[in-house]
């Protein structure tokens, strides 16, 4: 369990989004994995089996979140005195931008991309987890990546570095936003 924890958590983090939801999903997944261990028959690898549980737990967590009542106001309604400053703050929090871009993806695309790029599963393993044909997996990964690339680079004016860092002058950067 300990050996697989990091990747299970990473899958939950990327699919469920916010860290608290991800922790909840991860907890749910770990407990389900433990409870179902006696029924694990080895037909797939343990990782594939565990990631399937983690994926489903994360998607369940998302659905729970959608059912929760929204807070008092929508973020879009916030008045921004200086759009550029607000945009800069957004860019500094690259992780938040990535979370938002992922949240905008349809669940099926997000799960496929995360299982490929975070869990590092191959197409056939992802097909097992999502119970869809391999061709569908390829298509979903491609569309998901393209949508993320568009969301991360074209919807925002400032580029985001692949190393998760902003492009502003180092002196202007806050030390820690997380």
């Amino acid at each position: 369990m300990r050996r697989h924890y990091d990747r299970i958590h990473a899958v939950c983090r990327r699919i469920a989004g916010g860290s608290r939801d991800a922790d909840d999903a991860c907890q749910e997944a770990l407990i389900k994995i433990v409870r179902n261990l006696p029924r694990f028959d080895g037909r797939s690898s343990f990782g594939t089996w565990a990631y399937r549980i983690a994926t489903n737990a994360s998607l369940d967590e998302l659905r729970k979140r959608e059912r929760r009542p929204k807070l008092d106001r929508d973020d879009n309604t916030i008045d921004r005195a200086d759009d550029r400053a607000a945009q800069r703050v957004d860019h500094v929090g690259d992780r938040l931008v990535l979370d938002a871009a992922l949240a905008d993806l349809p669940d099926d695309l997000r799960a496929a991309v995360v299982l490929r790029d975070v869990a590092n599963l191959d197409y056939s393993e992802i097909a097992q987890v999502l119970e869809v044909p391999v061709g569908t997996v390829k298509s979903r990964i491609s569309r998901g990546r393209a949508a993320l690339a568009t969301r991360l680079r074209l919807d925002l004016d400032l580029p985001i570095s692949p190393e998760i860092g902003n492009q502003s002058d180092p002196d202007e950067r806050p030390t820690d936003l997380t």
Partner: peptide
């Protein structure tokens, strides 16, 4: 390269 940069971003998950 555009898709690769997405992959790099996604894979960099902050550990709990």
């Amino acid at each position: 390269e555009r898709l690769r940069s997405v992959r790099v971003l996604l894979a960099d998950v902050e550990p709990s």
